[in-house]
Amino acid sequence: MSLLKKKAGRLRAAAAVAALISVALSGCSMETTSPSEARDHADKKDTAPLGPADCRKVKCIALTFDAGPGPNTAHLLDVLKEKKVHATFFLLGRDHVMKYPELVKREAAEGHEVGNHTWTHKILTKQKADVARAEIDRTEAAVEKLTGKRPRVMRPPQGRTNDDVSKICKELGVSQVLWSTTAKDYSTNDTALIEKRTLKQAKPDGIILLHDIYQGTVPAVSGIIDTLQKRGYHFVTVPQLIAPAQLKPGEIYRP
């Protein structure tokens, strides 16, 4: 079995656990901020660019992809470029950023938001502070070396965070991003099913969670985009979803 297949298998198992626990915020104050709340409380003296749409006035949704880049990412980037859609990528450091540096550079160069999914996918709430910090910071540094910019958004593995993790994120200058839609693509390579699940759960201000490391996922993206655009949705990155609010380090954003 190849290293990539073994890695994918471990991530499938981890994601399955996440599904069972839902989005568990272990030991957390449970204070999260929705995109609309962020926009409503935007500092008028310190605003962020709106991007392709003003999400205060139209239906917006964010496509996000975890655990890449990988062999399928180049095709995904081709699809997004053709559709003129920007996504947010939460990258794993050791086995992905380091293995596919040119894809990381391409994601940034083509206008996507490049985010952090830790170095080795450790559950941050189970780690000592120095280990959790290193899991985030090592990927921050690796992406910065390739793109010239440190990620400003981070997705904790399995969506599990707590006050200690939030404190570390605040110190490192990254915001935490959860989700509202999951196709559970770690459990199936059925492209039609992945598309169906995603479309069924889609809602305004939603954040779609997919993985570009699984075979069935990337082929579903074109249909997801086409259908949601017909429904009047505008695709934006996560920072654009909360604009004109600025991202707040340590904050947990969740639709």
Rank of each mutant, 00 (worst) to 15 (best):
Y253A: 04
L50W: 00
L80K: 04
V85D: 12
S187G: 14
P255A: 10
L247H: 05
E37W: 08
Y214Q: 10
D212P: 07
I213E: 03
D95T: 14
P52F: 00
K99W: 03
G70H: 12
T237W: 03
K145W: 01
T88P: 04
K126N: 07
K6C: 02
H117K: 11
V79N: 08
S166N: 08
N162K: 10
K81R: 15
T181R: 03
Q158K: 14
K44M: 11
K83T: 06
L193G: 01
A141N: 13
Y100P: 02
K196Y: 02
H117V: 03
E195K: 15
L25E: 12
H41K: 14
A134N: 11
S34K: 15
D205T: 06
T147G: 01
L103V: 05
M1P: 13
T191S: 13
T188N: 05
S187D: 15
I242L: 11
M98N: 07
P49Y: 00
H96T: 09
I213M: 13
G159Y: 01
H117F: 08
T118V: 05
T181G: 03
M30F: 10
A38C: 12
G216W: 03
E195G: 06
S175W: 01
E31F: 04
L241M: 14
S26F: 12
G216L: 08
G148E: 13
V23N: 09
R94V: 11
R94S: 09
K203Q: 15
G51M: 05
N72V: 02
G68K: 09
L146F: 05
A141E: 14
D205F: 06
A74G: 07
V153I: 14
K44R: 13
V104G: 02
A87H: 08
I252W: 01
V177W: 04
I123F: 01
S2E: 12
R155Y: 09
T32L: 13
T47K: 11
S2L: 06
K83F: 08
V104M: 03
G223H: 15
P52M: 00
N189L: 06
G70Y: 12
C55W: 03
S222T: 14
G173Y: 03
F89V: 13
A48T: 00
G159W: 00
D78C: 13
D54R: 02
A13E: 12
A14I: 13
G93E: 00
G173R: 00
G206I: 10
I123V: 14
G51D: 07
L3S: 15
G223P: 11
L193C: 02
G159C: 12
A132N: 05
R155I: 09
